[in-house]
Simulated scan of single mutants.
Amino acid sequence: MTTTQADTVVNLLGVIVAVTDQIPRILVADGGHDRALPSGPFDPKANASLEEGFRRMIEAQAGLDLNYVEQLYTFGNRYRTEDEMRGGPRTLSVAYVALAHEEELLTGGTRWVDLYEHLPWEDWRDGRPAMLDTIVEPRLKKWCSRTSKREIKHKRTERVNVSFGYPGAAELDAVLTLERLELLYDSGILAESDRDTRILANEPLAPLPTDIGVPMSCDHRRVLATALGRIRGKLAYRPVVFELLPGEFTLFQLQQVAEALSGAHLHKQNFRRLVMNADLVEAIGRTVAVGRGRPAELFRFRREVLGEKLTVGLSRPTLREE
């Protein structure tokens, strides 16, 4: 890695998102104990910019030539890597989020997995996830009552209600993905909480449970939650969803991709009315056979709309139980 100070290194980290068969997919690398997001050192001599270095890294690791890429955040909290916990240097990770089409990976070491395997509480397309009632809420309730100080108990309860809603809530703010992830970590519910505590205490590591989703290396689930929140937030004002679709698509395909990203079921007629009223798409004069029903009309994204309006998007997503 490139050393910026004697005790600090810089690397590049990426959340590569695709939607395939209604499933939001991310690129992961299997290294060390847990799944990890693609990452690698930044070489300032070989790359004119951080983004150039990131694109080259993903091409080298997965053979992907990325289109839509944006910088997400720089993660640099203390003890976010096992190396630092064991006395090594602090790692600053410049993270990017990219939207792509799932392609066959021509190089080894990376693969595509379901995003919601890592953040299962974020997928409300089939209604309120059962794990919220059987696992998450009971454990959060215990965490809130684990202190005798009224002020701390009040702050914890307030934090739970803002992030996950009141007990049995029928809807949540879909954009608060990072807040929910950090709450699960701070309350000790997330598997990585116990892992990091053991590493800092120099204790033997135990197999990580997966009842709260599949764990990830370092703080990569935090990075993933940050990226998902960014994407969901952008649905309201930028047409990022079209980066995940082919050049020609049906309105039902568009709705399925939007639902996959937002983790929520969308009302068919309201969604189509919103898309058409915003002039986001236009019919191309052809249809395609879909199942046994009548042929579906094909559309294309009106890219010129980007120069016509300041805000071009769908709507702010809400995780809602139908």
Rank of each mutant, 00 (worst) to 15 (best):
R221V: 15
V275C: 03
W112E: 05
V175R: 12
D123N: 14
R90C: 04
I212R: 05
R316Q: 14
R25Y: 02
L298K: 06
E122L: 12
T318N: 06
V312Y: 02
S163L: 08
N202P: 00
Q5L: 15
G263A: 07
L251K: 13
T3P: 00
L172W: 10
L251W: 02
G313W: 14
A100R: 00
D7W: 09
T197V: 08
V9K: 04
E259A: 08
G168E: 12
E52H: 14
L251T: 08
G229N: 10
R294V: 11
E52R: 13
A95K: 04
A36K: 14
L72A: 04
A227K: 00
G247C: 02
V223C: 09
P295G: 10
G109Q: 09
V162E: 13
A130W: 09
E322R: 12
L224G: 01
A46H: 06
T2F: 14
R159D: 11
I26G: 03
T2Y: 15
P317A: 09
I58Q: 01
P167W: 10
R139E: 11
L205P: 04
V15M: 02
L319V: 02
N277I: 00
R303V: 15
R180N: 11
N277W: 00
T2E: 11
H33T: 14
V288P: 03
R273E: 12
R55S: 06
L235C: 08
H265M: 08
T226H: 07
P204R: 10
E102T: 03
G188K: 05
Y96F: 11
A18Y: 00
L251F: 08
R195I: 05
P215R: 09
K141N: 12
T3C: 06
L92Q: 08
A60D: 13
V113L: 10
I23P: 00
E137C: 04
P89K: 11
L280R: 01
R195T: 04
L13D: 02
N202I: 03
E158H: 15
H33P: 10
V214G: 04
C144K: 06
L37N: 02
K268I: 10
E117V: 02
G88S: 09
R195K: 13
R156M: 05
G63S: 11
E282L: 06
D194A: 13
R303M: 13
G165H: 04
E248N: 12
C144T: 09
